[in-house]
Amino acid sequence: MSQHIVPMRVYFVIFFSLLILTAVTVWVAFFDLGAVNDAVALGIATTKAMLVILYFMHVRYSSKLTWIFAATGFLFLIILLAFTLSDVLTRDWIPVSAGWGGGAQ
C-alpha cells in the first residue's frame, strides 16, 4: 500500500503545540493591543489549522494534488471574503444619493 506511516511521536508533538498555542491565544487576548489583537488571534488560529492540516491530515506527506485541493478551498474562501469586505468597507466613500447612506434606520 502507498500509505505513509508517520511516527507516533510527531502526533504528540503537534498535540502539545496546539495546546500551547491555545493557551497563548487566550493569554494574549487579555492585553489591549488594539487592532493587533485580531491579527494575533487569527495568526495563531491559522498556525494551528496549518499544523492540523499538515500533520493530522497528512497533507505534508501527500501528493501535490492533495496540496492543490486543500489550498483551493481556502483560496476561494478568501475571494469570497475579500470582495464582500471590499464592498462593505468602501460603500460610504461616495454617498450614492441622499437617503442611501445613512437612511437604513
Binding site: 476561494f76 471590499s86 460603500r91 466613500w93 461616495i94
Partner: peptide
C-alpha cells in the same frame, strides 16, 4: 468567481467594488 458583483450595480453596492 470574480465577477458576481455585476448583478449588484444598482443595489447600493460600493461604487468602487
Amino acid at each position: 468567481f470574480l465577477v458576481w458583483g455585476h448583478h449588484m450595480f444598482t443595489s447600493g453596492q460600493s461604487v468602487y467594488t
